[in-house]
Write a protein that binds this DNA or RNA. Sequence first.
DNA 1: GTCTATAGCTGGATAGAC
DNA 2: GTCTATCCAGCTATAGAC
Lengths: 198, 198
Amino acid sequence: MLKKPAANWREARRENARAAVLTAAWELVRADGLTALSLRELARRAGITTPTVYAYFESKNAILDAMFAQAAQEFVDLKASLPATDDPQQDLLTEARAFITFCVSDVPRYQLLFQHSVPGFTPSAESYELAVKALDVTRELLARNGVHDPRHLDIWTAVNIGLVGQQITNDPGGDRWSRLVEEVTRMFLAQFASGKSQ
Amino acid sequence: MLKKPAANWREARRENARAAVLTAAWELVRADGLTALSLRELARRAGITTPTVYAYFESKNAILDAMFAQAAQEFVDLKASLPATDDPQQDLLTEARAFITFCVSDVPRYQLLFQHSVPGFTPSAESYELAVKALDVTRELLARNGVHDPRHLDIWTAVNIGLVGQQITNDPGGDRWSRLVEEVTRMFLAQFASGKSQ
DNA sequence: GTCTATAGCTGGATAGAC
DNA sequence: GTCTATCCAGCTATAGAC
């Protein structure tokens, strides 16, 4: 509707160039931190000049928004890739492990997606909705474990985020907190699974 | 030893001025965020000019370090102010409540103290040690609840930080996560108190 | 100690030639 | 689309008069 097929190769070229800039952006923030994202250094890494960046993104915030959308999509893909076996407890543990690895393995992505820690930036509503929607998988997973209270979903996300936060802040590169995921999952399920909650 | 009593009033004057700058700094970061701390705006709020700031602090990082030291001391004071009753479970809940309120009521202080989220800044070793030492109170409190495994102390800090993080990030000004502290404390104690851990 | 003035740098964003 | 050149704003920090 919007684009004729004949113009597709142009669009594809443009998208490739945009993707290359985004790749350079991720490499930059992974190397120097999320707050170190500058258009000068980004352009240098991408092998172009600063004004050229504006040929593909209208502002720095537009780049951050595209990065947020990518991160949100990766989060959705992660959730979709989780196996559903006949052991709900094992599945929940698998999800927790996957989430923690997802966060710890790419700290700037975690900060962008879950901490909203870039000063002048708020994600677009659509990308944000995507990330929130991904929680539905967790909701179902908890339901299969007999956990139905929305408050307990909040507790589940909190303990997972807590492990991630402590791991990143106080033992970066290690596993002092991330290794506790199994024990924490047991604790959570012992209290809230199968209608055990008070 | 270092300062003669006769010079005390000079020292006191200087300390007052330093304290006034720090007060303005806290007001600034509470209003505009930790990353918005600039010497220009700080000076403006303190009713002085930028170079005058350097009469009291040798650099911006020195200001951040003084702020970190203040925050660490407030954290220590908070721990020291906790009542010790004959009900260890109640005391642990009281501590958790106090911690969460401490963090949520002053987000920049929380970020500075527990998130180390200022780009070029790392706290001085002494101030950092002060904050770590404050964990001893929690360690004792857990011991009085029959929790002795250091791993379970890590789990305890993680779940508390998790509630704080989710509260600040996803429901600022509300109580969606902070109100869950009692349920979370019950969950933790049910699993780990009195040598119940596996 | 406090000021005015400014150095020196880095940031986002734009003008205009090609 | 891509470049050179540049604008303008903000930052930390310093020089030097008073």
